[in-house]
């Protein structure tokens, strides 16, 4: 049977170009998170959809955790009418890991419309995950209508300001930042003066050798400012982290995986557990990509763009995790 034949639609019930089998295959890209492992103070991030290709040795380290993002609970349109199903699929993958992660990070857009029942559904699904601790930062979809009040009540205990905080795990300093509040017309994500001051103070007394992991919803590097994929005052935040030898920044928001290394900082974005978004500038807008089952393989192919450090400038290579 040819590849094309295999991907043909059998039953297109919703007339959205996706049949049940195609939908289950969609889970290969949608129902994903990232497995992160800290080894020798350096963090590596692997897509859960490709986890079978990673050797057991690569999965071992001082500390491992999982990043999931952009669950968009409540979204019900093509190409994913069942975002609860794909989140469950992500949890199944997490529970199936041979090396159990210590905790999970959710980098925002837990809900689609900030509705209480949407948060409830996500909480319920994540309860079945093996790692019991989940650390959250809000996405812009989680703070609609109430300036993030509900988000803070649910997930922000012990946090500062709009929900930023830090914690230590096995010598690694984790920092959750909020860049989806008080957005200005024409601008990008914003951290704001108060949060930046807090950040400067938070890392002031840490040893330079402490590995740092920063997580926030909107990318802290300029992925594609034309679509708002960046944070206006991220340079200031990164300046406070300059003294550290190992800094990893984990983001969501753009519903695709990207990596980039810049000096001491490695940036990663995680895929969405709900629906994919187009590559920067490859569509009229960053709206959800409607992916027919027969195009799935090409979608899988383009998500592995990997930015690596060259001698003087950044080089871009395609890579696979195999």
């Amino acid at each position: 049977m040819s590849e094309k034949k295999k991907d043909e639609l059998l039953h297109d019930h919703n007339h959205d170009g996706v049949d049940r089998r195609g939908f289950l295959k969609c889970m290969a890209w949608a129902g994903t998170g990232a497995f992160c492992v800290m080894k020798g103070g350096v963090l590596n991030s692997y897509s859960l959809s490709r986890i079978s290709e990673i050797s057991t040795a690569d999965m071992m380290g001082e500390l491992s955790f999982v990043q999931i993002s952009d669950s968009h609970m409540g979204f019900n349109k093509p190409a994913n009418p069942d975002v609860a199903g794909t989140l469950k699929a992500a949890v199944d993958k997490i529970n199936g890991l041979s090396s159990a992660p210590e905790f999970m990070l959710h980098t925002g857009d837990i809900s689609h419309l900030s509705k209480p029942e949407e948060f409830d559904t996500v909480d319920q699904i994540l309860k079945s995950a093996t790692p019991k601790d989940v650390f959250y930062v809000p996405g812009e979809h989680d703070v609609l209508n109430d300036d993030g009040k509900q988000f803070l009540e649910r997930y922000g205990k012990g946090s500062k300001g709009a929900g930023w905080y830090s914690f230590e795990k096995k010598g690694v300093h984790f920092i959750g930042l909020v860049n989806v509040m008080n957005l200005k017309a024409g601008g990008l994500g914003t951290l704001g003066h108060d949060q930046l001051e807090w950040l400067e103070d938070d890392v002031k007394h840490l040893k330079h050798s402490t590995p740092i992991v920063v997580f926030a919803h909107i990318p802290l590097w300029s992925v594609y400012p034309e679509w708002g994929w960046g944070t206006d005052d991220s340079a200031q935040a990164l300046a406070y982290l300059k003294k550290f030898g190992s800094v990893t920044v984990l983001n969501g928001h753009i519903h695709q995986t990207m990596q980039k290394v810049e000096g001491n900082v490695t940036f990663h974005t995680a895929a969405s557990t709900a629906f994919p978004q187009p590559q920067p500038g490859k569509a009229d807008s960053p709206g959800p990509m409607k992916v027919p089952a027969e195009q799935l393989r090409s979608v899988l192919g383009i998500t592995d763009v990997n930015y690596v450090r060259g001698q003087h400038a950044l080089a871009v290579v395609d890579s696979s995790l195999a």
């Binding site: 812009e140 979809h141 609609l144 957005l183 200005k184 017309a185 024409g186 601008g187 990008l188 400012p225 034309e226 679509w227 708002g228």
Partner: peptide, 12 residues
Amino acid sequence: YPYFCSIHPKMT
């Protein structure tokens, strides 16, 4: 009267 989308502030 300028306005924008507070979720996607690039929209003005």
